[in-house]
């Protein structure tokens, strides 16, 4: 899935240079992707400390596994796959404690601040309550801008499955965030609590 100008050629060159013994090449490679790796980890885990640990684990894993990179995926896909796996491993090992970073641009009206923060807290909590696989899909596609195809390559699942997981995640969020209250519905949509523990 290499496309002209997407930077993969330089990534491969840096990886080759690293394997050839150039001491700075791997750090240069990570430097090109670190911001997005960090974003994926933070959005997936919610907690900055956990996210930082996950990115650090993933970076070391990638460093150790560099020689085994087969080249059948883009380097960025390979790196982010390692990050997602590190995040999911970490999420499985411990309870996630979502935190909400302060908004960078505070609105002028304090009431707006409260309303905005309340929404952000609710969204963060709703994201944290998603099944891991759905959360990973929606973080990649909706929150860090990967295409469905790239997310599929990262998660190593078919694009259709990514799409399905994204839609299911959005539907769960719609319930959790109160967007899906339909009083005229003969059968109310199952509340979020009923969805917990459901299959993905």
């Amino acid at each position: 899935m290499t496309e002209p100008g997407d930077g993969d050629a330089q990534d491969r060159a840096l990886l080759a240079a690293h394997l050839a013994g150039e001491p700075h090449a791997f750090d240069d490679l990570l430097g090109r992707h670190r911001q997005r790796m960090w974003a994926v980890a933070l959005r997936t885990l919610g907690d900055p400390e956990d996210a930082s640990d996950a990115v650090q684990d993933a970076s070391l894993s990638a460093y150790r596994a560099a020689a085994g990179f087969r080249g059948d995926a883009r380097v960025t896909t390979w790196l982010h796959r390692i990050v997602v796996n590190a995040c999911l491993d970490r999420a499985r090992r411990q309870a996630v404690r979502p935190t909400v970073p302060m908004p960078e641009r505070p609105p002028a009206d304090p009431r707006d601040v409260l309303a905005e923060r309340e929404t952000q807290v609710l969204v963060q909590l709703a994201l944290a309550a998603l099944p891991e696989e759905q959360r990973a899909a929606i973080v990649l596609v909706d929150l860090t801008g990967f295409s469905v195809e790239d997310a599929a390559a990262i998660l190593d699942i078919p694009p259709g499955t990514v799409k399905s997981r994204c839609f299911r995640a959005r539907a769960r969020l719609a319930v959790a965030l109160g967007h899906l209250r339909n009083p005229e519905s003969p059968e109310p949509v199952p509340p979020a609590a009923d969805l917990e523990g459901g299959t993905t």
Binding site: P23, H24, F26, D27, L30, R34, Q35, W38, A39, L42, R43, P48, S52, V55, Q56, S59, L60, Y63, V100, P101, M102, P103, E104, E116, T119, Q120, L122, V123, Q124, I138, D142, L143, F167, R170, A171, L173, A174, L177, H179, L180
Partner: peptide, 29 residues
């Protein structure tokens, strides 16, 4: 279908991801 649009708006309003912490800027080599 309508609710998914509202969800997209909520997700878009999440605060920006903060900068990469200094601890991650260190070399792994």
């Amino acid at each position: 279908r309508a609710a998914l649009g509202a969800v997209a708006s909520d997700l878009a309003e999440l605060p920006a991801v903060p900068p990469v912490p200094a601890s991650l800027q260190r070399s792994v080599v």
